[in-house]
Design a protein around this nucleic acid. Structure first.
Lengths: 246, 246
DNA sequence: TTAATAGTGTCTCTGAGACACTATGTG
DNA sequence: CACATAGTGTCTCAGAGACACTATTAA
């Protein structure tokens, strides 16, 4: 089939598929590492050592290798920066407005990772922070996340506050119908800890009896028969997530 | 600040941000144009005029220009193929596994567009089809969509069935908390038409009184006082969407 | 009048919050 | 024993399905 046999519509279609007609682009991955500490959502940020935005806090990121899937690249970036492996990781959104990076045109495939606070070393690496996320419910419309470091509001480099806003929005949307949140807890956990995670994600308190009923009714939880220890009051039973993982 | 002042951790970080250390990639956009006809979800597919998958049905797509945002590129592809402008368009997911395109490494930023059936010409262009989407509720876990053309199941090129599966999954997730579906209807519509759209997306029937109550309770609808015409039975009142658009 | 659909009133069921209560660990 | 939290029983309320009914138009 030569091109002469095609009608104009199909010729236009073919042109649109010619890779040589379009320049190749730099593609990066950014990773929002999210955890819950003291009932609050937090995300890892790192200090940028070079322009643009030198000295600002930013999400860890890196460039996508030619033979690397976006998810693998995100996992590599995360492992390089934190040493964490086997973390729950999900693609979020691709940011590609020309001009979002002042240097050159860079496409960024944003991801988010969920990890229990217990797996994070107490002291983040040099220049790293665990920034608190403050997202009003209006953030549901896609607004940027407020970011608080050491009790002071901070601005993030690039459009990274917007990325964090979308992360929280995504978590809030998923938690309504999917077993989200277990990635933020250890292997076993109490129902109180699970409720704290839900409250941190949704940004509001919930009634204890209703929460217990709803969680146990999903059938995704199995009581281990063991109790938590190291508490100065009545220990709670430990549960394990045994449902279909999200 | 020279690189010698940086500690090893930051040097690794810098290397990860060096654009020259990574090859640039071809980036495409694919668009799933979705509509509802006869109470069924349908998506536009076009026949591929060239290898790979020559002759197969595929989603319309094209390459991303260097100074073009992904959304703009998707709108351009859609306008080129269908002549439609001002359509509701949203980014879905970026597919980037090496090997998903047998020719070369191509990243594809998938989008979906929602358009009322009335805006689609009765006869799709040459090689175009309006394929019916069949997605079981298990598709919620992300499985591919079944695609039916002229009552026969069809396979789509590349991973496009998976893209359509994610589109339906996304619509089902959003419709639970956001005013989704009005983009699939005209400026005014009856509650019965709105219910048909919801039933098409969710893949199940719903009770009429409960649906009416729920929709009217959102406050997003305004009765126009006008009635539909051209029906052989009692005409229904026409409503207009006046809430915050999704 | 018949047919077909629009639109509504009511009952019931389910799921969640509020509240109060009992249970069980530490000191 | 006091105290703090775990865990539960019960009431109430809001939202949704089921069902039956009335309303309105065309033929």
């Amino acid at each position: 089939m030569s091109a002469d046999e095609l009608d104009p519509e199909d010729r236009k279609f073919l042109a649109g598929y010619d890779p040589e007609a379009y320049e190749r682009l730099s593609v990066a991955v950014d990773v929002a590492l999210v955890t819950v500490i003291d009932g609050r959502l937090r995300a890892l940020t790192v200090k940028r050592p070079e322009p643009p935005y030198r000295g600002w806090q930013a999400l860890p990121g890196g460039f996508l290798g030619v033979d690397e899937s976006p998810e693998r690249a995100a996992a590599r970036v995360l492992a390089d920066k934190t040493g964490l492996e086997g973390v729950y990781l999900e693609q979020l959104y691709t940011f590609g407005e020309p001009g979002r990076d002042p240097r050159t045109r860079v496409l960024s495939i944003a991801h988010y990772a969920l990890v229990p606070a217990s797996r994070l070393s107490k002291a983040p690496g040099p220049g790293s922070q665990l920034a608190e996320l403050v997202v009003s419910w209006e953030g549901e419309e896609g607004g940027p996340a407020g970011v608080v470091i050491d009790r002071a509001p901070r601005r993030l480099a690039f459009d990274h506050a917007r990325i964090l806003g979308m992360v929280v929005q995504r978590l809030r949307g998923k938690i309504a119908y999917a077993p989200v949140g277990y990635e933020l807890l250890g292997d076993t956990f109490t129902l109180r800890e699970l409720q704290e995670v839900h409250e941190a994600i949704l940004g509001r308190g919930m009634s204890k009896p209703a929460f217990r009923r709803r969680m146990l009714a999903t059938g995704d939880l199995t009581a281990t028969g063991e109790m938590e220890s190291d508490v100065a009051y009545r220990p709670a039973e430990l549960y394990r997530f045994t449902g279909r993982p999200g």
